[in-house]
Amino acid sequence: MKHLKAFVHLSTTFCHCDYDVLEEKIYPPPHNPHDIIHAMEWMDEKTIKLITPSLLGEHPNCYTYTKRLAEYLVYEYRHKFPVCIARPSIVVPSFSEPVKGWVDSMSGVVGIFVGAGKGVIRSMMCNPDASAEIVPVDVAINAVLITAWSRANLKSEEVPTYNISLGGHVHLKWPDLVESVRGIIDECPFEKTIWYPGGNMRTNWLVHYFCVIFLHYLPAYFIDFLCLLFRQKKFMVRIQNRISVGLGILHYFALRSWKFDNDKLLDTIKALPEEDRKTFYTYDIDYDVRTYMLHSMIGARVYLLKEPLSSIPNARRQLF
């Protein structure tokens, strides 16, 4: 690969979640990646499941843990390839391209808001003072392209590492997102809502579990019981089980605060010609939270749920 100019490894800002402040540098892995790979090759599934909790340590899941190991594997190839590492935070619908609010996945934040809009999510644990470390997908991609350009112009074997997140620039808290979505759902509700859209953030686990039992699972079992009576396929408990898994993952990130330094990325962006900064927009655009969330919810409605905008008036009538 003689003509390779830049190899960008896509990681995540949460791969070093045991650090409250994440700098743009390589951190030592908790275990030797080669030892872990070798162990996975000969261990059976039962043994792997048994040792996984001790391997993960403070990591909430295998995703962040393996991303952390992968960073060091990439670092080891610095003498062979022009590598760099880009760490986006939680990726959310697009800001502008290909269209405003474009999204193709129900995972993460979008899935939670869709669930609340459908009336099936009524409670979520969240730290109201925690920053919402999100980044629109097109902004993240632009930043990744910028890092590739920067690495291609770097004549050394170092491994530049870039943190890509809006947390330190937009200063967005989770309650800001929730409140903006609450009003937007009333304006453009989804079709076939199970319950009136709503829900609240909780800071007390006992209250949250109480709400999950009485506002998530009891209605779900009741709906499935009705489906059984009318000889329809049961679905609601299965959906709530999936929601519980998703909430469990998101709770870890919504209850904690991190600071992601990105001075290196900002300096790289400043080095771009002015025309390129406009083309590959990142931090120098107007982030109006409500407008952005409106486009995001419309995007979820159109691209994920396949509900045309023409059905909004009818959805409003059903809601009210």
Rank of each mutant, 00 (worst) to 15 (best):
E275F: 10
Y75G: 05
L172G: 06
Q240K: 03
L305M: 11
I249Y: 10
L218A: 07
H295L: 08
W258A: 01
P88L: 01
I37W: 08
E24Q: 05
C126N: 03
P82L: 02
K118E: 03
F81M: 13
K278P: 03
E179N: 15
A116M: 10
K270N: 10
H34E: 15
V289L: 09
W149P: 05
V237N: 00
V99D: 05
I85P: 03
K80S: 12
G119W: 00
N163Q: 04
V178E: 06
D261K: 14
C227F: 05
N314R: 15
H34D: 14
F14Y: 09
T64I: 03
H9E: 02
L266S: 11
F210P: 10
E97M: 02
K67N: 05
Y75P: 05
V207I: 15
A70P: 01
Q232M: 14
G246Q: 09
C211T: 11
Y72S: 13
L226Q: 14
V139H: 00
Y292Q: 00
E187F: 10
E71M: 03
F81E: 11
P313V: 05
Q240A: 00
G199D: 03
H251A: 11
N241V: 09
R202V: 07
L10H: 09
I141Q: 02
I249Q: 08
I121R: 00
E133I: 06
I185M: 13
L56D: 01
L266V: 12
L255C: 12
H169W: 06
T279N: 09
S311F: 10
T193N: 13
V170Y: 00
D20G: 13
W195Q: 15
F214I: 10
Y287G: 05
C62W: 11
S105T: 09
T66H: 05
W174Y: 08
M40N: 12
F14D: 01
N32C: 09
L250W: 07
E191I: 10
S156W: 07
P93M: 01
F210M: 09
G167T: 06
P313L: 06
N127C: 05
G117C: 08
Q232E: 13
V245P: 00
H31S: 10
P136S: 02
L177K: 04
M236W: 01
G246E: 04
